[in-house]
Design a protein around this nucleic acid. Structure first.
Lengths: 109, 109
DNA sequence: TACGATGTACGACGAAAATCGTACATAAAC
DNA sequence: GTTTATGTACGATTTTCGTCGTACATCGTA
């Protein structure tokens, strides 16, 4: 009956270099850009490209454990969202600066 | 007579994920914060901590090849500086957002 | 030229990351 | 309970990264 638990770091535990590392991968940058556009997104809908499930799970875990995203189980699926307020509170302007241009270049490795 | 050449990527070749990766290491984040404070810095002056020369060279190379810093030979030494205008031109607000809080947390891994 | 100072290049080593297949867990519907 | 859909956990493999010692290159000066 355990409704699937996911670890989310506390706002105070967010570190800049962990967040930057989480965003330093093209695949993860694409995911975050997509989340920026859609607000909340089912994990499966992020799977459009040629990325296997387990690989996407891996990337989502890194984003979540860095405090970039929040994962919320909803029935069979997992809804992913950006922790915008939390990151903005700790590192103001960071997400804005990154996501303004994140979508444009994330497809050009 | 070759006055030591260093590769610096063109502004158009800067990519977000490379820059973010370069900044995702605590040591390199400290270096960049220091450059932010001092403007231009001799490579040896960044060596204050317990980081061997060759390790610092490695980190400075990663920063330089990501387009974050510029290396200018000056006599025996190397002067390092931030490519602020270039990065600001390509990713406005990014350096500001990162460096505002970069110094405070880079010492807490 | 020789010397000392500053930095780089190269190689080796261990640690961590990226990828992905397979097996397992959860939830809804039948 | 069985089936199907969705996603995670685990393990194996390959690649990359971070660290650092040693050898080499460059620059100024004696």
């Amino acid at each position: 009956m355990s409704p699937r638990k996911f670890f989310h770091p506390d706002v105070a535990d967010l570190t800049l270099h962990r967040i930057l590392f989480a965003l330093s991968d093209p695949t993860r940058l694409t995911v975050v850009s997509e989340l920026m556009r859609t607000g909340e997104c089912a994990s499966g809908d992020l799977l459009a490209e040629s990325v296997p499930r387990s690989t996407m799970t891996h990337h989502l875990k890194i984003l979540r454990e860095a405090g970039v995203t929040r994962t919320r189980p909803e029935g069979m699926r997992c809804l992913i969202s950006l922790r915008r307020e939390d990151i903005d509170a700790r590192f103001p302007g960071l997400l804005d600066a990154i996501l303004t241009h994140g979508g444009a270049e994330s497809s050009a490795p």
